[in-house]
């Protein structure tokens, strides 16, 4: 049962109930849609990139607690970062949530995103956590197709 509390930590529930940076971004220079066809989650990620910096990032959509919290925490983390830094954080986050629960991960490098590491224990929910991130990267890359987790 400790696993459940690990998954649904206070920080995650807080971001689920009060998602940060939620809603469209009029100044967006890039956007992408993401969908998890298995559960019907949909998300849009909006980016305002100035020079090589993510000046602003917001998201909209409807999803479960994990996908909403992950998206909300992502926007908080990436705002003000360079594109290169965003890619590094993406890789670090992705490696963490897709790693085997038995392996050691460097949670320190993840900052507040570390609260999402518990998803590793729930293989069926990894896609919930990663949807926003794949969508963000598609927005960075200027891809117009909807990203899916399948």
């Amino acid at each position: 049962m400790s696993d459940l509390r690990e998954l649904y930590q206070e920080v995650i529930l807080d971001h689920t109930k009060r998602p940060r940076n939620f809603g469209p971004l009029e100044e967006a220079t890039g956007r992408a849609n993401g969908a998890n066809p298995l559960c019907g989650d949909v998300i849009a990620v909006y980016l305002e990139v100035v020079g090589d910096t993510v000046k602003n990032i917001r998201f909209a959509g409807a999803g479960c607690a994990i996908s909403t919290a992950s998206a909300s925490l992502m926007t908080e983390t990436l705002k003000g970062k360079t594109i290169e830094e965003a890619q590094v954080i993406f890789d670090c986050f992705h490696d963490t949530v897709t790693s085997s629960p038995d392996t050691e991960v460097d949670l320190a490098g993840l900052g507040k995103l570390a609260v999402l590491a518990g998803v590793r224990e729930f293989p069926m929910r990894v896609k919930c956590a990663s949807l926003a991130w794949h969508t963000m990267r598609a927005a960075l890359d200027g891809e117009n197709d909807t990203v899916t987790t399948e």
């Binding site: 696993d3 459940l4 998954l7 649904y8 989650d41 999803g63 479960c64 607690a65 994990i66 919930c128």
Partner: peptide, 14 residues
């Protein structure tokens, strides 16, 4: 209300 079915499913599974 306020809880996505996926979260319900994960908790019930536990």
């Amino acid at each position: 209300d306020g809880v996505h079915p996926h979260d319900v499913g994960t908790i019930l599974d536990q």
